[in-house]
Structures are given as structure tokens and as C-alpha cells.
Amino acid sequence: MDFTLTTDQSALMSALDRLAKPFESKPIDFHGFALAGNGLERELTEGEYFDIAQIPELGPLTAAMAVERLAWLPCTVDTALSMLVRPQLPGDWPRPIAVVENGRPGRFVATAKTVILIDGDQASLAQVGPEDVEPVESLFAYPMGRLKRRPAATALSAEDAAKVRGWLRVALAAEASGLLQAAIASAGEHLSVRKQFGRPLGSFQALRHRMAECTVLAGGVRWLALKAAATGDEADAALAALHAQESATRIAYDLHQMLGAMGMTLEHPLHLWTYRLKALVSELGGRGGQALAVARHAFDA
């Protein structure tokens, strides 16, 4: 048990900080509901960051830290799926990666080269091209897309399907962890500046306590996500995803409530994190699905 970063992990995180810097500014003009991180994707590809989980000194735990760090940015790339799930797929599948659950629109589908298809308990993999996919307008702050037709897919064995589902949960939790922290920080800035009744909103205890509770939940998500990435254990993955979806549901609501009307605008960036969280909340069966998975693993339900 050791919670300090290794030298390799610290070095990687510093490199990511430098890489992320130019992408940190928050857009103030109208930018649609999502902000695709095309420039960021180029940088990550050039630096071979999508493959860090395969480097023995780094591994999935460090990849999860990277996913978390990059989720702080206002723009988005399929980092979680590419860094954490792709290395676990049987065989070599090209990125970008997307997931289509029960035929619904999914994140990054319109630009994906590989799609993970989830239909109930079944999972399969398909390579797709531009002719198979199309973008959809969405309120979620991810570029969303859907399949125009069902591509030829390779079914996964039950064992592989369970493994992929487990890593999808890790990816979800790691990304949610970064999004939660960024959203809380963004709301915290606003509450420190915005004054009503002659004092900053952040000095009212009703809001201070609510913010503190959000922070505690987000911290729990972080530790569960990192542990799940480190152990690769399906039970840990289910726990992390459950706590992530539970916390995201509550925190997305609370933060918007505390920001008042400003949080409803696209001028304020809060939605860039909360509307990614809301997309994650629905995945893999939502909280009920995660709870069932947790109970199966922990209590043999």
C-alpha cells in the first residue's frame, strides 16, 4: 500500500501538465454544446500517450491518472476508451474507439475507427469507416454519433465481454473523476467571486457544506477509480463505476443549482464538465446496472 506517485508517474504527470496548458482556456464565444479536442488529439498521438498503459513502468494505473488529468480540460478526446479499454481488447483495434450500447447514439461514434457494440449481455467489436457513422446533435458535451447501419462485428467470448465491460467501467470512473474535480473547481471559482447580500456566495454555509460534500464524493470516486485501474479487478471496477455515477448524478445537479442562471449559459464552461458527466451516468446500465454488478461480485447476488 503506497499512495505516493512513482518517479515515472510524476514525470508523466508533469509532461501532461505541459501538454495540456495550451488547451486550458475556456471558450467564451458560442462553441456548441461539446468541444472536440482535435489539437489535443494530435499532441497526444504525436507523444504516443495513447499507449502508456502498455508501458510496464506506467501501466493502466498511470493511464487512469492521465485520463483523469485530461478530463479537466474543457475540450474532449476519447482518452479513456483509447488509453484504458483499447489495450484490453483481444487483438489490435485502431483508435479512436467508441461504444454503442443497445443501438443508442454514443460518444465519439462519428469519428471512431473501432466500435464496441454492447447489446444486453453480449459484446462485439467492429471496425467502421465514415460511411458507417454519422454525427448527431446532442445536449451532451461529447461529440455524439450513431451507426447508420450495423457493421460486420466480431462477437466477444463471455470472458472477454466481461473483461471489456470491466475496463469500460474503469474508463468511466477515471474520466468521471477528472470531470468531477474540474466541475467543482469551476463552481468554486464562481462562488468565491459572485456576491449577493454583500458577501461572496461561497461564504454562505448552506453552499459551503454542499460544496464540501461534493468534494468528499469526488475524492472517493478518484480513489476507487485509481484502485480499479491498478488491480484490473472486475469487482473494483464495478464499485468505482457505481460510486462515479452516484456522485456524478448528485454533483451535476448541485453545482448547477449553486451557480444559478449563470450555470445555464454556454458563456460559463460548467456544462462542458457536467454534461459529460450526465452522458456517463447513463452508460453500462446506469446506477442500477452498476449496483447489480457490485452486488454480484461482492455478495454473490
Partner: peptide, 20 residues
């Protein structure tokens, strides 16, 4: 089943927090 899963997640979150 659902409630026990939530409680379990909360216990493990508290455990890791304390370990930190």
C-alpha cells in the same frame, strides 16, 4: 441489492480515503 451495493461503495471509498 441496490442499497447494499451503494453502502459497499461508500465503505470502500472511506477505506481508501483513510489509507491516504
Amino acid at each position: 441489492v441496490e442499497q447494499s451495493a451503494r453502502a459497499h461503495a461508500a465503505c470502500e471509498a472511506a477505506r481508501l480515503y483513510s489509507y491516504q
